[in-house]
Amino acid sequence: MFYEFTGKTVKEAVEKACGELGVDEALLDVEVVEESKSGFLGLVGQRDARIKVKKRDLLKEIMEVSDQPSEPEREPLPGPCWECGSEETSAAPQEAGVAETEESPAAQEAPPELEQARKILVEILAKMTIEAEVRPKMDNGAVYLEIIGDGSGLLIGKEGHTLNALQYLVSKIVNKDAPAHGKTEIIIDTENYRLRKIERLREKALKMSRRARKTLKPVWLEPMPPDERRIVHMVLASDREVYTKSHGEGAMRRIVVYPRRMPNKRRGR
C-alpha cells in the first residue's frame, strides 16, 4: 500500500510522511517520484518534491516466522558463545530456511549490483587471507551475501563490528555513484549472525517494554545503528501499551520506549 506525500524538499516530504503515518523514518520505504525544483528566484517554475512511501514489513515477516515456535520468555538462543560460531545453532537456521523460501518470489531477477557486491566481497576476503565461500541472493530487494567460512567468528568480531565494517564498505563501494534514494541495500551475514541478532534485539525490546509499563517512565536504550533501531521499532509497533521514538543524531541516535499511560496524564498520545 503506497501513500503519496509532497514537500518543499524530499526531506520535508519524508518528515511529513512520518508524522502522518505515525512511524519512524526507518520503517518506511521511500521512493522519490519527483525531486523538488527551486525555480527561478524561487518564484517561477517552482515545484514541490513528491514521494511515494510504503510501510516496511520485511523484518516483521522474519519475526513472525521465528515467532511461532517460541514464547518470548523462553528460548535462550545458542548460549553465550555466538562469537565463537558453534555448531549447535538450534532453531534459528531452520527458521531462516523457511523465511528464504517464502519471501523470495517477488525478487527473482538479479540486478547487476548482486554480482558486483559478490565480487567485491570475495576480493576483500581473499586479501584478508580468509578462505570462505560467498553465497549471494536477493532478499526483498536487498542484496544478501552469506559468507560460509571456517566458523571461527573472526569475521563477526566483537559485537559484530567486523561484519558491520565489511557490510558498510561493500555497500559504500557498490553505491558509490548511486543517488540518495536509489541505493541498494547490502546485507552481509555469516553463521546466521543477523538472524540471531534480530532474536536478541526482539528479546531486549520486549524486556524494555515490560520495564516501561512497570515503572511508567520512559526507558532509554543505548545508541544503535538504523537497522537495529528499525527492528526494535517494529517489535514494539504492535505493543499497545508503549510507543517508541528515536532521539539524537547520527551514531548517537537511540530509541526511547514510552509507556502510553503516564503517571499524571491519563493518556500520552
Binding site: M128, T129, I130, L155, H161, T162, A165, Y168, L169
Partner: peptide, 14 residues
Amino acid sequence: RAMRTILSAASTKL
C-alpha cells in the same frame, strides 16, 4: 574506522 576494523581482523589471523 571500518577499514581499520577489517585490517585488525585480518592481522589478528596472522
